[in-house]
Structure formats: C-alpha cells, structure tokens
Computed example of a mutant assay.
Amino acid sequence: MGWVILAILIIVGLYLVVLYNRLITFRNRVENAWAQVDVQLRRRYDLIPNLVETVKGYAAHEREVFENVARARQAAISAQSPQEKGQMENQLTQALRQLFAVAEAYPELRASENFQNLQAQLAETENKIAYARQFYNDTVFRYNTTIEKFPANLFARSLGFTKKEYFEVEGEGREPVRVEF
C-alpha cells in the first residue's frame, strides 16, 4: 500500500513539473509575442514625427491636426496593457487619418519623394503590426486555453498563471491606415 501511494505521489509530482514547465514556456511565448508587437508599434511611433514634419512643410496652418497626432502618439506610447494599447491605437489611427486627409489637399506634398517614402514605410509597418498582433493573439489563445483546460486548471492559478489579455482594436481601428492617394 505504501508503494502505491508513493508511486501516485511521484506521478503527480512529475505531472506538476511537466505542467509548470509547459506553462512557463507558454507564458514566455506570450511575453515574446507582445515584445514583437511593441517593436512594430515603436517603429510606427518613430515614423509619425517625420510624417508630421513633412506635412507641416506644406500645410503649416493645420496646427490642430498636428497636435492631435502628437497627443495620440504620446498616449499610445504611454499605454501599458494590451487593452489600453488597443484603445490608444484607435485614437492614433483616427489622428493619422486626419493627417492624411490634410495631405490629400496638397498635390505637391503627395508628389514629394520624402512623403511617398514615409507612406511606403508606414504601410509596411501597418502590415507588420497586423501580423504581430495576430501572432500575439494566437499565442495568448494557446496560453489561455492551456491554463483553462482540465487538469491544468486545477494547478495553474495556484502556480501563478493567470489569463492574458488579447490585443484588440475596435471599430475603424481594425482597418490599417490608408496611405495611398
């Protein structure tokens, strides 16, 4: 009888070690995926001041639009959680749409090589953000599913593993910023 109890304890112990290591792997994948989203968002944030300066050269009287973009960019940079990031990215996307609407009124601006280069870089970055967001959300899905499945759900919370948030954008923010004229 003692051997049976010992065997059961060893099996449970081994299961907990394997489960813990698996959960650690998933948690690290989620953190890595979020870091990749953050890299692409930072790239976007770095392009925006150059874009604003380029448009300013042609449309200096559109001060409110430039200020909206700057405020939205700063708010997006400051956001921490995926939910906050999603909300702030929506605001930044709206502000960029206003900026591109202003740019549409200036044919010389649209024809400038610098503006076209910035447009192409922003479009490429938007695609990378979409991919990174999808990869992050897929990774979060796998992680959350793993910690919610039986029997892992019996141990996950007590081992410090909790659900992660998805990085979601709402409404118009789901569409990439249009940078073509």
Rank of each mutant, 00 (worst) to 15 (best):
V12C: 08
K56T: 01
T93L: 10
Y143E: 06
L41K: 08
D46P: 12
A95V: 02
F161A: 05
V140H: 03
A59C: 08
R44C: 03
M88D: 06
G173R: 12
R29A: 11
Q83H: 14
Y15P: 05
G173A: 10
A60C: 04
A35F: 08
Y166K: 05
Y143N: 06
L154N: 13
I77G: 00
Q94Y: 15
S81C: 05
W34L: 12
A111M: 10
T145F: 03
E67T: 15
Y106W: 04
L154H: 14
S78T: 07
P82S: 10
N114W: 04
E31A: 15
K56D: 09
E165Y: 08
E175G: 10
V17F: 06
A59R: 07
A70T: 15
S78W: 07
Q116T: 09
E126T: 10
A7N: 03
T139Q: 03
E104A: 00
F181S: 00
R71A: 00
F115M: 03
Y136S: 02
I5A: 11
Q87L: 10
F155H: 07
Q36S: 14
A79C: 04
A152C: 07
S112H: 11
A76L: 06
N153S: 12
F141N: 14
V140D: 02
E172P: 15
E31M: 15
E104C: 00
R110D: 11
S81T: 14
R43V: 00
Q119N: 07
V102K: 01
R73G: 12
G2K: 10
Y136Q: 02
A101R: 12
E175H: 14
A76W: 03
Y15W: 11
Y106S: 11
S78G: 11
M88F: 08
E89G: 11
S158T: 14
T139I: 06
N127E: 13
E165L: 08
V65N: 11
P49M: 03
E62H: 07
V30N: 04
R142T: 11
G13I: 00
N68I: 02
I147L: 11
T145D: 15
L47H: 04
F100T: 00
L122Y: 06
E84K: 10
L9M: 13
E62I: 05
A76Q: 05
Q121N: 10
P82W: 07
Y45H: 14
R27W: 08
L159W: 07
K56S: 05
Y131S: 02
E67D: 15
L19G: 09
E126H: 07
V65Q: 14
L96V: 13
L154P: 15
L99M: 01
V55E: 12
R157W: 05
A111Y: 10
T25N: 15
Q98G: 12
I11F: 00
Q80Y: 08
V177P: 01
N117K: 10
E180T: 12
L96E: 01
V169I: 12
A101P: 13
E170A: 06
E124K: 14
L16Q: 02
L118K: 05
R97L: 12
Q98K: 15
V102W: 01
S81N: 07
N28L: 09
A156I: 06
L6M: 13
F141K: 15
P49T: 04
L99R: 02
N137H: 02
A7P: 07
V69S: 04
I48C: 03
E172G: 13
L118P: 04
